[in-house]
């Protein structure tokens, strides 16, 4: 069979189109499943209410639920800690696999007002941490969160704190897993957490 020049061109075009189509279909499946990303391992070195130094190393094997806040906060912090408390209750026997941490961004005042009684009022499992200014800033930077002291003559002691209000989940190996934005219901946090345990 002899093909005309036009026929050869058409066959070549058809072949090329098939090849391109095949590549387009197959290529997405060939990309690696997990895009490798730089490890994000937020860390802290902060004293608890008794003054004992705490670091992520001692919680190896446990998931960490980390919240940065201040005990003088009437709305955001109690709401989030209530949800953490509910999650811990609902985890039942798996609660031992999760350690909730409250890191004070207003450590001097929180130590004076009482850190342990504050965390215990929400849930006995919550560990409160309050360091000095440098330790607190280092922990916040490591978690890449924001906090600032804001002068407010009408506020108690003449200032209040603004801060990132999310809840952060850290893996048993110390890797950042995700954040739960402020207002995430306890049931949603629980549903995300349980399959990981």
């Amino acid at each position: 069979m002899r093909l005309t020049r036009l026929q050869k061109i058409l066959w070549a075009a058809a072949g090329l189109a098939t090849l391109v189509y095949g590549l387009l279909v197959l290529l997405p499946n060939r990309t690696p499943e997990a895009v490798p990303q730089a490890d994000f391992r937020p860390t802290f070195s902060l004293p608890d209410a008794e003054g004992r130094m705490r670091t992520p190393a001692e919680f190896a094997g446990q998931h960490l639920l980390v919240f940065f806040g201040f005990t003088n906060c009437p709305d955001v912090c109690p709401t989030t800690l209530s949800e953490v408390a509910q999650v811990m209750d609902d985890l039942g026997d798996d609660a031992a696999l999760v350690q909730p941490l409250f890191i004070s961004i207003d450590p001097e005042r929180d130590r004076r007002l009482g850190l342990a009684e504050f965390t215990a009022a929400f849930h006995p499992s919550i560990i409160g941490l309050a360091g000095d200014e440098a330790q607190t800033r280092a922990a916040a930077d490591s978690f890449r969160i924001f906090y600032a002291r804001e002068g407010d003559t009408a506020a108690p002691d003449g200032y209040t704190m603004s801060h990132s209000p999310a809840l952060y989940l850290i893996s048993p190996e110390g890797d950042w897993l995700r954040q739960f934005t402020y207002g995430t219901p306890a049931t949603d946090i629980l549903a995300d957490l349980q399959p990981r345990l």
Partner: peptide, 19 residues
């Protein structure tokens, strides 16, 4: 002694509590 109206506002991922 000092009750006030406030609003919790979350802007760009930061919560503050303006009067």
């Amino acid at each position: 002694g000092m009750p006030m109206l406030h609003e919790t506002v979350v802007t760009d991922g930061v919560a503050s509590m303006p009067h």
